[in-house]
């Protein structure tokens, strides 16, 4: 793949997109994991699927150039995120209820749009599991723009988001506007999901947001370190996953996620060894 990378534009697009997604998915994922919102990412990815199916339907029936499945997916994801926030404030005592409601809604809509478009095709398959060949130059530019927006906003609101994630009551007492920051955060989540789906696919996007974090949280000291390690693990997974997916002719979603799981297992084993070694030292 490395030598083909310079030869074929689609591979280059995929590779750069993968590198971008390998940064922003674990970056945002760290906040998602510590706020125990991992399942929200899943719910949103299924809403995004509905948007993509809607876009594919539009493509098939009409020719509206600018409304590609990528953009309709992103639009649905953003709308879904707004619904989740609304539902979470309606069901204050059962905030997790928002997840099955939004998730099933997304799947229901997807089924309808897919059958209206007369069933499955390779495009849809690529969106479900990711693809090494589906990224156009326009997609790459859009994802680059999203990545810049996400990184800039997260840097600007880092301390507020961090403070809110740790202890919402205390943050509110000191005068932080919890509602607005929440809203911003869920919007960013929607954008990152839409961007990542090109590479890892709908079904596995939440894995790329959470598995690298699950690994780094075991060994990192502090929040910043957790973020940095998560991004490193995310990048390793994306690179190994893309290259092996290309050679094995497997959708990269599968290989990326399996690489993440392998890293996670290695980290857990490493931690075990480390702890038992330290205990032995204490005993001696």
């Amino acid at each position: 793949m490395i030598e083909n990378l310079f030869e074929y534009e689609f591979l280059r697009n995929t590779f750069f997109t993968g590198l971008l997604v390998g940064i922003i998915a674990p970056l945002l994922g760290t906040f998602i994991v510590v706020r125990r919102l991992s399942l929200i990412a899943d719910a949103l990815s299924h809403v995004t699927l509905a948007g993509i199916a809607f876009g594919l339907l539009l493509e098939k029936k009409y020719t509206i150039g600018f409304l590609t499945p990528f953009y309709t997916g992103m639009g649905f994801s953003v709308i879904g995120s707004i619904f989740i926030e609304k539902l979470r404030s309606v069901y204050k005592a059962y905030q997790e209820l928002a997840i099955p409601i939004i998730l099933s809604g997304g799947v229901g809509l997807s089924v309808i749009f897919i059958s209206l478009a007369n069933g499955f095709n390779t495009d849809l398959y690529n969106y479900l599991f990711g693809s090494v060949s589906a990224v156009s130059r326009n997609d790459l530019y859009s994802i680059l723009a999203i990545s810049i927006v996400v990184i800039v906003i997260l840097t600007l609101f880092y301390k507020e988001l961090f403070t809110l994630s740790f202890d919402e009551e205390h943050a509110v007492v000191t005068g932080i506007h919890a509602k607005r920051i929440h809203f911003l955060f869920i919007l960013l989540t929607a954008l990152v999901i839409a961007a990542s789906i090109r590479i890892v696919g709908v079904l596995l996007v939440s894995a790329l947001m959470t598995l690298p974090v699950a690994a780094s949280i075991r060994i990192a000291k502090g929040f910043k370190q957790t973020i940095i390690l998560s991004i490193i693990f995310g990048e390793i997974s994306v690179i190994i996953g893309l290259v092996s997916g290309y050679y094995l002719e497997i959708p990269p979603g599968g290989t990326i996620v399996l690489t993440s799981i392998l890293i996670l297992l290695l980290v857990i084993a490493f931690k075990r060894l480390h702890v038992s070694y330290a205990e032995k030292k204490v005993i001696q």
Partner: peptide, 27 residues
């Protein structure tokens, strides 16, 4: 303010003492 619930925070939250104290300056 130190809440009655301060001690029921998520014990797995990866934040150092420095980082937790820095939150008091956020606002």
């Amino acid at each position: 303010f130190v809440s009655q619930k301060a001690n029921s925070f998520n014990k797995g939250f990866p934040a150092t003492v420095y980082e937790v104290v820095s939150m008091g300056l956020t606002a």
